[in-house]
């Protein structure tokens, strides 16, 4: 009695296994594209390429990195939002996408994107030139309180992360910087090194080496904890200031990818981000990997969006048609 039952059930099971691929959604079955809105070589691009390199552990298909650049990152975001919502096109974004969605009526609205997985934060540090003769955050703020606008700060054009970070610093401590815009991080670092500007708030991996070589001085890390690249630099909080300014990386999908696929992708990427060899490679280049699941990612994005909106609104940068 038992034997035939077993046979029947096992044949059923076998046939189910055979037919399962035909019935169920066999996702993914072709390479998945990761769209990076910035050119090759930057932190976003490196993060995506590292994921692609380590994908074979958790993915059955390859990940292909595509750089779709232009218009302060909004071209790449639109490329993802307009792509077929089949789960084969995924984007990487950060603060820039939030800022663009409020400043540029032609950029993709945040509502048209579905957050997938939070990859990690990219904390900034406050750096000053060696000859500025400022040793810590207190001295920096004193200088600013004595003579508002006396510190020339290098940053992105409005909407870029380092601009927003500088504005956050101004708002938080009620000081005034002279903000000079540069095209991206590399020119800002060279302006800092050449002494054209006195300070800048930039991601730490860009400054750690120059700090170690004594070409510039890091005053404080604007994050919860110290950065592994610069373990000797205290955070703002340790110095008694509650100031956090971090950019972030996260993956997102176009608006209406089927829920099943979305969950599967979220699961796979979450697993990839937890992968030990990936984490090691990422920490080697100074990326902080702190993955968050889908729902937390969505909450994080909402929170950051509110924050960035307030900063942009206070500086009068929000486009009239996009005010809340």
């Amino acid at each position: 009695m038992k034997a035939p039952h077993l046979i029947i059930s096992s044949t059923l099971l076998l046939s189910l296994l055979w037919t399962a691929p035909l019935l169920a959604d066999d996702f993914p079955e072709k390479p998945i594209n990761i769209v990076v809105p910035w050119p090759t070589g930057g932190a976003y691009d490196l993060a995506a390429r590292l994921m692609a390199e380590h994908a074979s552990h958790t993915f059955s298909v390859p990940l292909v990195v595509q750089n779709v650049t232009g218009a302060a990152g909004s071209t790449g975001v639109r490329h993802v939002a307009d792509a077929t919502a089949d789960g084969y096109t995924i984007g990487v974004m950060g603060t820039h996408a939030i800022a663009q969605s409020y400043m540029n009526p032609n950029a993709t609205a945040l509502d048209d994107l579905t957050p997938l997985v939070f990859i990690g934060p990219e904390p900034a540090a406050l750096a000053v030139t060696q000859d500025a003769d400022i040793d810590d955050v207190a001295a920096y703020l004193d200088t600013l309180n004595e003579a508002p606008g006396s510190v020339i700060n290098g940053n992105d054009s409005p909407g870029g992360f380092s601009y927003i970070a500088a504005t956050m610093l101004e708002n938080q401590f009620d000081v005034e910087l002279t903000k000079i815009p540069y095209q991206g991080y590399a020119p800002t670092v060279s302006a800092l090194l050449s002494g054209e500007v006195m300070s800048a708030l930039l991601p730490i991996p860009l400054l750690a080496d120059q700090h170690a070589a004594g070409q510039l001085r890091l005053l404080g890390v604007a994050a919860q904890e110290r950065h592994p690249f610069t373990p000797e630099v205290p955070t703002f909080q340790e110095q008694g200031y509650d100031f956090i300014a971090e950019d972030f990386f996260m993956l997102y999908l176009p608006g209406d990818v089927p829920e099943e696929r979305r969950n599967k992708l979220a699961e796979m990427f979450y697993a990839l981000l937890q992968d030990a060899s990936f984490q090691e490679a990422a920490s080697d280049i100074g990326l902080m990997i702190q993955p968050r699941p889908q729902d937390e990612t969505a909450r994080y994005l909402e929170q950051r969006a509110d924050e960035v909106y307030d900063i942009l609104a206070a500086s009068g940068l929000v486009d009239d048609s996009l005010t809340r």
């Binding site: 050119p39 930057g42 490196l46 280049i285």
Partner: peptide, 10 residues
């Protein structure tokens, strides 16, 4: 050189 630097970083 930004790309070259990125590749060296990797």
């Amino acid at each position: 050189t930004a790309v070259l630097m990125g590749s060296l970083l990797i």
